[in-house]
Structure formats: structure tokens, C-alpha cells
Simulated assay, not measured.
Amino acid sequence: MTSASVPRGLARFNALEESAALAALHEVCASTAWARPLLAGRPYPTLDALYAAADAATSALTAADLDEAMAGHPPIGGPRPGDPASAREQSGMTSAPDRLKAEMRELNLAYQEKFGHVFLVCATGRTGEQLRDAARQRLGNTPERERETVRTELGRINRVRLARLAGAEDRQPRHP
């Protein structure tokens, strides 16, 4: 494979010094246990190879690692000030009517009370109504099922962010 076929952003990521690459990976996912194997796997010849490594790392996260990853995510409808990634990803809630935003705040609280962590969902491309409906539906999950749903959603978020890191936003996953 020639370097010309590697997306420019992926080539830049591959060439970063270790500390800068680790910092970039922590922008994608707050879990050190997730970032370390991705760092060790460089250089990646393709975006698909990077995705495969990310998926494997997400699957291998322990409960504590998953908690660390979730701690890096603000609630839906409340992106952290100065966090453009969360604001961009949650743009479906930005334009939502006030009543929907209030309902989402209540659902976030109910979810956190039931499961003990933030409601984590890949919000990219979803409307405020879709996000609300997802929260409502997932409140019916058992804690065990919800943990696996969170792992799946984290993997989706990580892929979206890795695509952005690699300069391949056109290859981001889409939601049904």
C-alpha cells in the first residue's frame, strides 16, 4: 500500500510523537485502556485497520475502563463549554424546542439514577426526538443489557471521532 492511499489525516496521526498521538486518542475516548492498544498498533495502513483496532479495544474494556470512557462524555443536551466535538455531535438537541430539551434533562436524570452513569448514545446525525426516544427505550433495559448497549454506542462514537481524526468524515457510520 502506498502512502498516497492513506488518508492525509491518518498519515498525520501515524506520524505523531507518542505523547501527541495519545492525547489525540484521548480526545476520541477518555479510556486509557482503549487508547494504549491503538497507540501500539500504529502505523495504520487504512481507516478500516484503525476501526478494527478501535473495535477490538472497545470490546476488551473492563467495567472500570468503560466507566472511565463514559466519564469523558457530557449528558445529551448539555455539551461541555469549549468542547466542539460534543457540541457538533449533539447538534440535534441544539435546535430542539425547549420542551424537548427539558424532557431530555429529566430522562438524563432518570437514566443516571437507574444506571449510575451518563446516558451514552452516538448522537451524530440524530434529531432531538430520536435522542429522546432512545433514552426512553433504554430506560427499560436491565443494567446488564444497558452496559452492553453502552459499549456498542461507545464504539460508534469512537468511530465517528476517529474518522474526523483521520480526515475521513465522509466514512462516518450512519444511523438507521
Rank of each mutant, 00 (worst) to 15 (best):
L162N: 02
L139G: 01
C29Q: 08
G92R: 11
D83F: 12
V28C: 04
E89M: 09
Y51G: 05
T149F: 07
A64V: 03
L22P: 11
P43A: 01
E113C: 09
D170P: 02
R136S: 12
A96H: 03
A15N: 09
L154K: 05
K114G: 12
R8C: 08
P37Y: 05
L165W: 06
G128K: 05
A123G: 09
M70Q: 09
Y51V: 06
E27G: 15
V160I: 15
V150M: 00
L131W: 02
M93S: 09
N158H: 08
M93I: 02
C29R: 08
A53S: 12
R132L: 08
R8E: 14
E146W: 01
A23I: 00
A135C: 14
L120V: 05
V28L: 04
A33H: 08
G41L: 08
P37H: 08
R161P: 02
W34V: 08
P74S: 13
P7R: 06
Y51Q: 06
R147M: 14
L162P: 03
A71P: 00
A24N: 03
E17D: 14
T58C: 10
E89F: 04
L66D: 02
H117V: 07
A87D: 09
A102F: 01
E106S: 15
T94W: 09
G78K: 14
K114H: 12
E18A: 15
G72W: 10
S95L: 10
L66Q: 09
Y44R: 03
D170H: 13
L109C: 04
A40K: 13
G140T: 11
E144D: 10
R174G: 15
A20L: 11
A30W: 02
T142R: 11
T152N: 06
M93V: 11
E148Y: 09
A49K: 11
P43S: 04
I157Y: 04
R136K: 14
D48G: 15
R174T: 13
N108I: 10
S59T: 10
A20F: 01
A35Q: 04
R132G: 06
A102Y: 03
Q130G: 07
R88N: 10
A33W: 00
L107K: 02
A54V: 06
A163E: 00
D98P: 06
G9Y: 01
E153I: 06
L131C: 10
G116F: 11
E153C: 01
S5I: 12
M104I: 15
I157K: 10
L139E: 02
F13M: 08
R151Y: 03
A123S: 13
I157Q: 07
T62E: 11
T32H: 10
N108H: 10
A96N: 05
A35P: 07
T32I: 05
R147F: 09
G9F: 02
R151Q: 03
D133R: 08
